[in-house]
Write a protein that binds this DNA or RNA. Structure first.
Lengths: 113, 113
DNA sequence: ATAGATTATGACGAACTCGTCAACTCACAG
DNA sequence: CTGTGAGTTGACGAGTTCGTCATAATCTAT
């Protein structure tokens, strides 16, 4: 059985360590709307699909299971990379180290259940 | 005026040298449905968005005008990019703010010299 | 200018999502 | 046991898209 849209949404949300209420707040939905999407009760409309992808900082294609890289998109990612271009190489290294630290922190949390 | 979804759909369809009827046949719509989409009278639903992207052989993100990253190349950018995907949404926000700070610092330094 | 292809527009009921809200389960901490 | 937080489910009217069809408008040649 293939992974449904709802399954994928849930998986990505949990990877980003958001609960339904938090994701609802970011997207401007009711928490129940997230639940409806994840359980397959409703399919998000055009506009709301965009909001979900933005809030999770992933591509819509990734959200829909067309696994083409990069998986990252949206306003947060765009701002980050735009600013990345505007700093010194040294600052870029520092930023990258900070990112590695955050990613590592998340990896360890994943381990400890 | 930003390019609307309908504008983009039309542009891509014409690039592929399809008329509305041909695209309609590929997607299983009525020709009028394509016209409705291109003129902005209707916004395609979740499912139909997928069909359109399939039939035109483009990503949904491209269809929606989301610039696919990265514009930046190099090992440092790639590492940052990979780690970005592996952190919580909140950390992504924090990282982006840190990047904005560094970029701002560099901008001010440029001014004073 | 006439004919044919292409696109545009508008209507119809059916089906769907929307936001909102209430009621319910379930896990877990005090 | 009691409460608190997270998630589920189901309902409601309002609004939208659905497929289908008819018809008007526009373009493209001969």
């Amino acid at each position: 059985m293939p992974e449904t849209f709802g399954d994928r949404l849930r998986r990505i949300r949990e990877e980003k360590r958001l609960n339904q209420a938090e994701l609802a707040e970011r997207t401007g939905f009711q928490p129940s709307a997230i639940s409806h999407f994840e359980s397959g009760r409703r399919a998000p409309s055009f506009d709301n699909l965009k909001k979900l992808a933005d809030s999770l900082a992933v591509t819509i294609d990734f959200l829909l299971g067309r696994e083409t890289l990069p998986t990252t998109a949206g306003p947060v990612a765009e701002k980050l990379f735009r600013n990345f271009e505007k700093m010194t190489a040294e600052d870029q290294d520092d930023l990258s180290k900070f990112a590695a630290m955050l990613a590592e922190k998340n990896r360890r949390r994943q381990e400890n259940k």
